[in-house]
Computed example of a mutant assay.
Amino acid sequence: MTDDMTIRIDSEQYVLRRDGDGLQVGRQNGTDVAWLNTVDLALLPAPAREAVERGDTSDEALLTALRGITQAEVERGG
Score class of each variant (00 low, 15 high):
residue 10 D to P: 05
residue 51 A to S: 03
residue 12 E to C: 08
residue 4 D to T: 12
residue 41 L to P: 02
residue 46 A to H: 09
residue 23 L to P: 01
residue 17 R to M: 08
residue 69 I to E: 04
residue 67 R to P: 00
residue 71 Q to G: 10
residue 27 R to F: 02
residue 50 E to Q: 15
residue 65 A to N: 07
residue 5 M to S: 12
residue 4 D to P: 03
residue 76 R to T: 07
residue 74 V to N: 04
residue 72 A to G: 11
residue 26 G to N: 08
residue 22 G to E: 11
residue 68 G to S: 09
residue 74 V to A: 11
residue 30 G to K: 04
residue 49 R to T: 05
residue 26 G to V: 09
residue 44 L to T: 02
residue 34 A to E: 15
residue 27 R to P: 00
residue 7 I to C: 02
residue 66 L to N: 05
residue 40 D to G: 05
residue 42 A to V: 11
residue 69 I to Y: 01
residue 69 I to A: 00
residue 3 D to R: 13
residue 52 V to Q: 02
residue 41 L to D: 01
residue 39 V to E: 06
residue 11 S to H: 15
residue 18 R to H: 13
residue 26 G to D: 06
residue 65 A to H: 08
residue 44 L to Y: 04
residue 2 T to I: 14
residue 51 A to K: 05
residue 50 E to H: 10
residue 54 R to G: 06
residue 21 D to H: 15
residue 44 L to A: 02
residue 20 G to I: 07
residue 43 L to K: 13
residue 22 G to L: 06
residue 72 A to V: 11
residue 3 D to K: 10
residue 30 G to T: 03
residue 77 G to R: 04
residue 57 T to P: 07
residue 63 L to I: 11
residue 48 A to F: 04
residue 35 W to H: 10
residue 77 G to F: 04
residue 60 E to D: 14
residue 30 G to D: 05
residue 50 E to W: 02
residue 31 T to C: 04
residue 15 V to W: 00
residue 29 N to M: 13
residue 50 E to N: 09
residue 3 D to Q: 14
residue 50 E to R: 12
residue 56 D to F: 07
residue 37 N to M: 11
residue 6 T to Q: 14
residue 20 G to M: 10
residue 2 T to C: 06
residue 46 A to G: 03
residue 8 R to V: 15
residue 12 E to T: 12
residue 53 E to P: 03
residue 31 T to M: 10
residue 59 D to E: 15
residue 25 V to E: 01
residue 22 G to T: 08
residue 75 E to D: 13
residue 76 R to P: 02
residue 52 V to R: 02
residue 58 S to C: 05
residue 74 V to W: 09
residue 23 L to A: 06
residue 77 G to Q: 05
residue 54 R to K: 13
residue 42 A to W: 03
residue 24 Q to F: 07
residue 71 Q to I: 10
residue 32 D to E: 15
residue 26 G to F: 08
residue 11 S to I: 14
residue 15 V to E: 10
residue 76 R to Q: 12
residue 72 A to L: 14
residue 24 Q to V: 07
residue 26 G to Q: 06
residue 68 G to H: 07
residue 30 G to R: 06
residue 60 E to W: 10
residue 33 V to M: 01
residue 65 A to V: 06
residue 50 E to P: 00
residue 77 G to P: 05
residue 50 E to G: 05
residue 46 A to D: 13
residue 33 V to N: 00
residue 12 E to M: 11
residue 31 T to Y: 07
residue 10 D to L: 15
residue 68 G to F: 09
residue 10 D to V: 12
